[in-house]
Amino acid sequence: MSTDNLDTITPIDEQDVRRYGGEKREPKKPFKFQIGDSPTFFVHEPDADTVMDIEEASTSRRVLKLFLGEQFDDVADFLGSEHPETLIEVVRDMSKHFGLFDAEQAINRVERRSRDRRRSGRR
């Protein structure tokens, strides 16, 4: 690739550059929840990589795993026998708590697909 057309002399006006990241931000408080008589679970604010994965997740199980990490199996033990709306409520509330509105849209898509499967007799 030729560098003949690259302008290496004109300085970039640093005042017009919007900068993101690099600063230490105070994390949001953990999301605390229980399912029935379960112990209290604590979910810490996800990092940007995890948020992008949550936004791309196509199933509620995947979204929950991304939020919960190593706690997933413990939560799933309590959640498994609950009404499906409980799952949707937990994930939706986590999304709202951390300000992840795209994650809520993903949950709405998952909820719609789940509802459509139940109507057609599939699980």
Rank of each mutant, 00 (worst) to 15 (best):
V63R: 04
R122D: 10
K96T: 09
V75H: 03
P39G: 08
M52A: 07
S60Q: 05
F72D: 11
A57C: 04
V43F: 00
D93S: 08
D49S: 07
G22R: 14
E82Q: 14
G22S: 06
F31H: 01
V91M: 04
M1S: 10
E45K: 06
Q71H: 09
S2M: 04
E104C: 07
H97Y: 01
R92A: 08
R123Q: 10
R25W: 08
D102C: 03
F67Y: 09
F78N: 06
I35Q: 10
R115V: 08
D37C: 07
H44S: 12
K65L: 06
D116R: 15
S60Y: 01
F101G: 08
R25G: 06
R113M: 13
E89P: 03
G36S: 06
T3W: 13
K24M: 08
D102F: 09
T50A: 04
D74V: 02
T50G: 00
D49K: 13
T59Y: 02
F33C: 01
D93G: 01
E45G: 01
Q34H: 09
L87M: 12
I107C: 10
D13H: 13
F41G: 04
G99I: 05
R18P: 04
Q105P: 02
P84F: 12
F67I: 01
E89I: 04
P30V: 02
F33M: 00
R61F: 09
G121N: 09
M94G: 06
K32S: 10
R117I: 06
D77L: 12
L68F: 03
S60T: 12
E55S: 09
G99D: 06
E85Q: 15
R115N: 13
S60F: 03
G121M: 10
R115M: 13
E104A: 04
D13F: 11
L79P: 02
R19H: 13
R61N: 10
D7G: 00
Y20E: 09
Q71D: 12
D4L: 14
R18C: 03
E104H: 13
R117Q: 15
D47Q: 02
G80K: 15
V90D: 00
R61W: 07
A57G: 05
N108A: 10
I12Y: 01
Q105R: 15
L87N: 08
K28I: 06
D116K: 15
V75R: 00
F78R: 02
R92Q: 10
D53A: 11
A48T: 09
L87W: 07
K65D: 03
N108S: 11
G80I: 12
Q71W: 00
L79H: 02
V110I: 02
G36H: 05
M52Q: 11
V75S: 03
R122F: 14
R19N: 11
T8S: 13
D53P: 06
D16R: 15
R18I: 07
T3Y: 14
